[in-house]
Design a protein around this nucleic acid. Structure first.
Lengths: 130, 130
DNA sequence: CCGAATCCTTGACGATACTG
DNA sequence: CAGTATCGTCAAGGATTCGG
């Protein structure tokens, strides 16, 4: 067995030291990617994100943003207005990550047809077997 | 608001037509990436994967493989020996996906230190606030 | 306006046992 | 060897309510 792309301590995903999980945990997150993508053009306010990303709850968006902030992907700025105004923006780290994710999404778009075809063929085989 | 990398139907992640989800669902999967990575060198048998990926149960590995097969990432080949021998291998689609994920993992490795630093700084700020 | 706190449902995952 | 079937646990996510 050759060396894997990212070691991950003998493939033990439970190992918190695995660097890949640091990023993958965000990718796996149902919303994080959409949030990052929404911030690509510059700072956005909380409720603007909430409105634009259809289906996310306040609680979850709050969690996601907090986590992205903790990981240094997003910067939170609160303006002492009344009522409070809060803006979220990509940090440099977050910007480079978002840039790397782009190609992956493009790959998904480019190969969507193939994936769907594979799924259909698979399902059809199942149906004919039954 | 400019066009996002992947449209996702006005950011509605629930929309199954979103091409990104087709791939992201796999990335979010706790094991799929490890499986894909394990297959990079060529066909591998079920129990070999199971042994090499520490911590995965038969059930889940079975599920993951079936899903990867359905999505056209992995090809399953059963040899009519006694007892049965089954091999899993990356398809061309799976190979290109695995190739695209690599850079992302490298990014994670390269920036792991920064991420950890951000986390520490964040946690420290929380502690001093308390 | 921006969130925190609470309750609740759902489904992912693991352990175990069994089959062709 | 390569799975399927069943059960139990547990945490993520949604709905709602309250606070600064």
């Amino acid at each position: 067995m050759a060396a894997p792309t990212s070691d991950c301590a003998q493939f033990n995903v439970y190992n918190q030291g695995c660097p890949a999980r640091l990023v993958l945990d965000h990718l796996g997150d149902k919303w994080a990617l959409l949030v990052l993508d929404r911030l690509r053009d510059g700072p956005v306010r909380f409720n603007t994100i909430r409105r634009d990303i259809n289906g996310v709850s306040q609680k979850v968006l709050s969690q996601v943003l907090k986590r992205l902030e903790r990981d240094g992907m997003v910067a939170r700025t609160a303006f002492p207005t009344v009522p409070v105004t809060v803006e979220y923006a990509l940090t440099e780290l977050g910007t480079t990550l978002t840039a790397r994710v782009g190609p992956l999404l493009h790959w998904a778009e480019d190969n969507m047809t193939q994936i769907r075809a594979a799924q259909s063929a698979y399902d059809e085989r199942l149906a004919s077997a039954a």
